[in-house]
Simulated assay, not measured.
Amino acid sequence: MLLLDTSTLPARDRVEAFREVLTNGSTRNHRVIHEVPPEGLHGRMEGVQVGGLTVFTSQNTGFRLVRTPRHVRRESSPLVAVAVQPLGRGRFELEGEQQLVGPTDLMLNDLNRPHDFSWTGTAASKTVFFTHDQLGLPADTVRAATFRLRASPLHDLVHRHLTALFADADRLALDPGAPALAHATLELVRALLVSAADDRAVGRPVLADTLLTRVLAYAREHLADPDLDARRLAHVHHVSVRHLYQVCERAGVSLEQWIITQRLEGARAALASPANAHLTIAAVARRWGFTQPTHFSRRFREAFGTTPREWRQRRS
């Protein structure tokens, strides 16, 4: 949902409109300081609910957000924000520590603490918000993780997951799977925070609780790898194959069938895309982890009631 587009407003009204959206939205109770370039302030803000999670996007000219102890005291239900910076470089400061945030970084901001965030020139930020109750983590764990996200081996996995979520948030918000996606996002962020904080007392149960979510997220990113199987997934996540199967069984997930289904769905979409018209069916199959064309064709027909060739011809 579009919250603000300053291009539709007279220049004299833009600062007030910008501040109104920020101070009445998810970043309320901040002091907003604008950098107004010669061409004038401009900004575009959007917000959407994806399965109960608030996703907020802003692209605008330089500004600074300051949250003081007084602002914190005014807040009735402070949130935890996890953000990516797809354009420009942000500067985040909290309790004397600083972080520069670029396109490959995740930023964690507990709004229950005074902080200072800014950027210069036109830049963009995309953020998902969680309540402390949703995260279910001690405040000290969140605090310890704030400037240590890159130390976690889960950082890049969660970064890719959130980047994909942000890129298609409007469509995903309408999908029947949105609540499950929101739950998976929450679980991945919880796992990242306890990993980054190196909080072993909290980490063991949280990492155990989020194992299947992390395994399926990893598998989804490596569907093109022919050697993706239970043994590799167990090794990457430091558990035994037997334990992994037990976790899957409790959740009602057949791991091998889940991988096959995801690969087939990806290949079906790829075959229907004009962008792949120059590729042979075998080449598309290989891109989705199928090394044997005959095996791919058989599984495709079993799943969709048609051959890959027939499907492609009908969609062309």
Results as ranks from 00 to 15, higher is better:
residue 82 V to P: 05
residue 117 F to N: 11
residue 35 E to P: 10
residue 122 T to Q: 14
residue 126 K to A: 14
residue 312 R to G: 09
residue 111 L to H: 10
residue 306 T to I: 09
residue 55 V to R: 01
residue 19 R to C: 03
residue 196 A to K: 11
residue 273 S to K: 13
residue 203 G to D: 11
residue 266 G to W: 05
residue 46 E to S: 07
residue 152 S to M: 07
residue 226 P to D: 06
residue 272 A to G: 04
residue 182 A to S: 12
residue 161 H to G: 11
residue 263 R to P: 08
residue 172 L to F: 02
residue 182 A to P: 11
residue 158 V to E: 03
residue 309 R to P: 13
residue 239 V to Y: 09
residue 39 E to R: 12
residue 299 R to E: 07
residue 91 R to A: 12
residue 252 G to V: 00
residue 237 H to P: 01
residue 281 I to D: 05
residue 204 R to T: 10
residue 186 L to T: 03
residue 276 N to H: 09
residue 115 H to C: 04
residue 219 A to Y: 03
residue 208 A to R: 05
residue 184 A to C: 03
residue 223 L to A: 11
residue 111 L to M: 08
residue 198 D to Y: 12
residue 153 P to D: 05
residue 71 H to T: 01
residue 91 R to D: 10
residue 267 A to P: 00
residue 82 V to R: 10
residue 274 P to T: 06
residue 191 A to Q: 12
residue 98 Q to I: 11
residue 107 M to R: 02
residue 286 R to N: 13
residue 28 R to M: 01
residue 69 P to A: 02
residue 91 R to V: 15
residue 25 G to W: 06
residue 236 V to Q: 13
residue 85 Q to L: 03
residue 136 G to C: 06
residue 246 Q to M: 05
residue 79 L to T: 15
residue 46 E to N: 15
residue 298 R to E: 05
residue 243 H to M: 07
residue 15 V to I: 12
residue 137 L to H: 03
residue 295 H to I: 14
residue 58 S to T: 09
residue 113 R to K: 04
residue 66 V to L: 13
residue 60 N to R: 06
residue 110 D to P: 10
residue 95 E to K: 11
residue 130 F to R: 00
residue 306 T to D: 13
residue 265 E to P: 07
residue 16 E to T: 15
residue 150 R to I: 03
residue 215 V to K: 06
residue 97 E to K: 10
residue 27 T to V: 14
residue 311 W to I: 09
residue 20 E to M: 14
residue 131 T to H: 03
residue 236 V to W: 01
residue 17 A to F: 08
residue 211 L to R: 09
residue 179 P to G: 09
residue 178 A to D: 02
residue 149 L to S: 02
residue 94 L to P: 12
residue 162 L to H: 08
residue 162 L to I: 05
residue 150 R to C: 07
residue 97 E to R: 03
residue 50 V to S: 04
residue 152 S to E: 06
residue 128 V to M: 07
residue 289 G to I: 03
residue 120 T to S: 10
residue 1 M to P: 12
residue 140 D to Q: 00
residue 168 D to F: 02
residue 301 R to N: 14
residue 123 A to N: 00
residue 142 V to H: 10
residue 277 A to Q: 15
residue 203 G to V: 00
residue 299 R to S: 15
residue 70 R to T: 13
residue 133 D to H: 06
residue 39 E to Y: 03
residue 137 L to R: 02
residue 177 G to K: 04
residue 124 A to F: 12
residue 295 H to M: 09
residue 164 A to E: 11
residue 11 A to F: 04
residue 188 L to W: 03
residue 61 T to M: 02
residue 283 A to K: 11
residue 3 L to V: 01
residue 166 F to E: 00
residue 17 A to P: 07
residue 237 H to G: 03
residue 86 P to L: 01
residue 227 D to W: 13
residue 213 T to C: 09
residue 8 T to H: 06
residue 40 G to I: 01
residue 276 N to K: 06
residue 145 A to K: 05
residue 267 A to F: 13
residue 266 G to D: 02
residue 240 S to C: 07
residue 286 R to T: 15
residue 27 T to K: 12
residue 164 A to V: 03
residue 234 A to N: 13
residue 78 P to N: 04
residue 231 R to L: 02
residue 201 A to H: 13
residue 37 P to F: 01
residue 230 A to Y: 12
residue 84 V to H: 12
residue 201 A to M: 05
residue 110 D to F: 14
residue 234 A to D: 02
residue 43 G to H: 08
residue 311 W to N: 05
residue 240 S to I: 08
residue 225 D to P: 09
residue 262 Q to C: 08
